[in-house]
Every structure is written in structure tokens, then in C-alpha cells.
Design a protein around this nucleic acid. Sequence first.
DNA 1: AGCTAACCTAAAGAATACCTAAAGAATGGC
DNA 2: GCCATTCTTTAGGTATTCTTTAGGTTAGCT
Lengths: 231, 231
Amino acid sequence: MQKPRILVIDDEVEIANLIEKYLLREGYSVRVVYNGNTALEAAQEYEPHLIILDILLPDANGIDICIRLRQLTTAPLLFLSCKDEEADKVLGLTVGADDYVTKPFSPGELMARVKANLRRAQIGGQSRSDELLRFDRLVINPISHTVSVDDVNLELTAKEFELLLFLVQHPNQVFSTEHLFHRLWGEHSLGDTRTVLVHISNLRKKIQPAPGYPEYIATVRGIGYKFRTQL
Amino acid sequence: MQKPRILVIDDEVEIANLIEKYLLREGYSVRVVYNGNTALEAAQEYEPHLIILDILLPDANGIDICIRLRQLTTAPLLFLSCKDEEADKVLGLTVGADDYVTKPFSPGELMARVKANLRRAQIGGQSRSDELLRFDRLVINPISHTVSVDDVNLELTAKEFELLLFLVQHPNQVFSTEHLFHRLWGEHSLGDTRTVLVHISNLRKKIQPAPGYPEYIATVRGIGYKFRTQL
DNA sequence: AGCTAACCTAAAGAATACCTAAAGAATGGC
DNA sequence: GCCATTCTTTAGGTATTCTTTAGGTTAGCT
């Protein structure tokens, strides 16, 4: 079983190192960065399963970083803050944080939250399920090749699944039908790239949680399509 | 969608023109130069998405030009040569060329290489080189193709987005409507350049943070327009 | 102030891109 | 070899976006 990877973003070195120590003791793989800019790089390169983010950073606002992290990853995000004002709590959660811990906190509490969030994201507990992707009401399991909305399994065809997986693995990135076609059908495939369009259309119908619910796959007219994490 | 711009550097006029002809037929925007010195200028001014470079040039060695081009741009570089010696091939790729075609070549092969390299560049390049552009209350994300003012997303059309992106990427530089037209619509496009003007007008309305707020896009009477970073 | 040239913008027509349903082609299981 | 499923192509309808036009506005000059 692969160790869950956790990214810690905190400018206060002592606190960051303390958190790291506890996480390591629990058996996680940890990386620590001390500012927002390197955080974004680390999120891309390290591909963490969970992120612990301090709201007070020197170079950028934590919420700002949060928004930008959300565009890079779907890993659960745990906010850390000195302020326990309600306003911040609400704001933090709406911009994409999954949980919120206020300083001062007990290490035990933090560990519990980490564990809970990893479990909810279905990482760490089961074998090889660290590959599970989830967003909103949608859960994709590349290993068992299944997709569910609100825990109801969907019957996707092979191409539909590939297409969805690719888009979810690159959230908020726009791809033209040509790009998608060559990416999924092979570099040298020739054929009508409009076939991508048909699959997207069918896919949308299937993954739609409810009529009128915002589309997961957004059309960017004149450019292409993207899986958006801001509905 | 913006036409990809391709810079062709070859001293043999007939060959250069033949390549140009085929590229134009594929829908690319093309500029041709016949020697190494003007190539460097063109690379800076034209900002091509891909460069085709003949290894045998009158005034400078192609590999030499290649090295210097690499300092100016990250666009994929396609080497062209009569010699199909292995040594050259290896050397060409190590100094920064992305692909290598030996003369005589079929136009189809060259077009296929061009296409493949452009695609590869767009896929790989997006994740790291493109950054979030921000100025004042305006934020532009080229990857997700979104623009926001004060964190409120704007609904821009494809052309509006292209235009804004270009201006923001060249801050404080004045461009005539002709220049903008040829840049965004393609080198050889014909049509009324006043259409640019209409897009600028629509754009201003959309990106305006508040009534009476200074315009991001300034008119330079008799000259053109610029995106100004001093409001 | 009046004139002119340059610029702006609203609006209408033309062009384009997109969506969807449905039919035909390919694939894979029995 | 046949049937069921999935994939691809096609085509028509629709909505959006682009371009053009034309009249109004502004800025700069004499």
C-alpha cells in the first residue's frame, strides 16, 4: 500500500515542522513548503493526497492560494488559521476547502481531521484506492473503471470513461476537440474530431446529477471543453 | 481560434516558398525569412508558435541560430537539412531542436511533423510555462480560458479573450488596428480592420471594474491601442 | 468656437460553432 | 455467424458570435 502524501503549507517554520513530525509518526509521506508560490509548484509535482494550508502566508493570501490549488488538484484541503471567526470559516469552505482547524489546536485533533478527510476521499484505507478521483457528487475509480454520482453507479462506455477521466485529471484546462481526439484516439489517428463532441454530449446526459444542475463539462465556445471545478 | 504562427527560415527561395504554400493551405499564418540575422528579429517580433529552420544558411550556421533562437523563444524548433548524417541529427536535437526532417522530404511528412509538434507544445507547455496574468483588479487565466475582475468571472467571447490576452502580454506597447488584425486574424487575412475596434469597444465594457474607472485599454489617437499598466 | 478627422457604439445581417437525434459501421460476445 | 452494444458519421436545427455598416461622439487643430 502506498503511503498517502501530504503537503503542508505554512510560513511559521516551527509549527510546520511540528505538524510534519506528527504526520510522519502517523506513517504519512510529507512535504513542507513555507510560502504560497512554491506551494503551487509542489502541488503539481508532488501530487499530494491531502493539503494542509495555513491561511496566513507572507506572499499571498491563503484563500487565494486555495482557489488556485483547486485548479490543480482535487485533493482534500485542510485550512489552518489563528482566527476562529465564522466569516473566515464560511469563506474558506466555499472556495474549496474541505475542512477547517483553528489554532491553537491539539496535534491529536489535527491528525483526526487528516485521517477523516483522507477516509472521506477514500485514500489510504483500501488497497490502491489512492487513485480515486472525486469532485462534487462525482466519483471516478480508474482501477475498477467505475463512475458514480451520489453513490449511484453509472454505465459508461469505454470511450466515455476515458474522456471523462482525462478531463477530470486536468481540471479547468481547456482542450479543443482536436486535442482530445489525438490524446484519446492516438497521435496519428485520423477521423472526424466531431466524434468527440458526440461523446461529450452523451457523457453529459449520463453524469448529470439532476436536471438543471450545472454542467461538469463546460463548453468554451470557439476554444474547446474543460472539466470545471467551480460550478 | 487563433491561427498558429509559423516562422520559416531558409535561404533557398523556391523551397521556402513551397513550404509556405503548404503551410498556408493547412491554415497556418506564415512568415518567411531568408537568412539568420533577420530570423532572430522575426522571432522576437512575430512570436511564432513553431519555427522551421534550415541548417544550411548563408550568413550563419543553422545550429548557431538555433542556440540563439532558444534564448528568445520556447516554441518548438524543426530542423531541415540535406545531410542525413546521424551526427548532425543528434547535435541538432541536443542544442534544442524538437524535430528533424531531412531533404528531400514530402510536404505531407513536413506538415505532419509540424502538426505533431504544435500539439505536443500546447499540451506540455500549458501546465508549467503559462502563468496566471494579473493586473490591478483583472486576472487572466490562459489555461482555463477565464477572465475575472474582482474575482467575478466574465463571459468573454473567443475573439475578445484573444485580443485581451495579446494586449496584456504586451503591456504599454501601442498596436495599430492593422497590426492587431493581422496578428489575431492571421497574417494574410483580409477584411475590415475596423472589426478590431468593435471588439475593443465590447471588451472595454466587459472588463470595466466600475463606471468611471480608468480604461485598461487606452486609445492612442492616430496610432492605435495599448494595455496600460499605469492607470 | 467651429471644423475636421479619428474614434466609438449600437444594431442588423451573415457566418460560424455547437448540440442532438438518428442512422450506418465496427466491434465483441455467444 | 448472428446479435447486441458501442462507436462514428451525418445532417438539421439553434444559438452565439463575428463582421459590417452607419450615425453619433469626441479630441485636436486653426
